[in-house]
């Protein structure tokens, strides 16, 4: 069972194609990295620059964090590839449990 992937009849053509695809994917990775850095800069700037209301800052930086995490998960951790259905189910279930926990701890622990 060493190699279950069926490469095409001509391995060199297949190799070329795969190399190209990998390189293309790497380009996407760099783009998403740039965007992540950009989001981070905005988040830090929003806090660093005086004058914004914290009612504005908090939701915005949380949103930026969420978007950034989506990039991490779907690009860096390849969740956009096929065959990640089960993984997504379990990860998001975990996230749901976690969010309920956070919600409860910010509302009903006698604050």
């Amino acid at each position: 069972m060493a190699n279950e992937q069926s490469n095409s009849a001509n391995p060199n053509v297949d190799l070329k194609y795969r190399r190209k695809k990998n390189a293309e994917e790497m380009k996407h990775q760099v783009i998403s990295f740039t965007l992540m850095i950009f989001f981070t800069l905005i988040a830090f700037a929003a806090v660093g620059i005086e004058g914004f209301s914290h009612w504005f800052i908090k939701p915005v930086i949380l949103l930026l964090a969420a978007v950034q995490v989506v990039f991490q998960l779907y690009y860096f951790m390849h969740m956009k590839h096929k065959g990640h259905g089960t993984i997504a189910l379990f990860l998001f279930s975990g996230l749901a449990v976690g969010l309920i926990t956070v919600l409860v701890f910010t509302t009903i622990v006698w604050l």
């Binding site: 449990v97 926990t101 409860v104 701890f105 622990v109 006698w110």
Partner: peptide, 12 residues
């Protein structure tokens, strides 16, 4: 501190 935290964590 807050002892309710333990109750929640334990029952979650």
């Amino acid at each position: 501190g807050n002892t309710i935290i333990w109750e929640h964590l334990f029952w979650i």
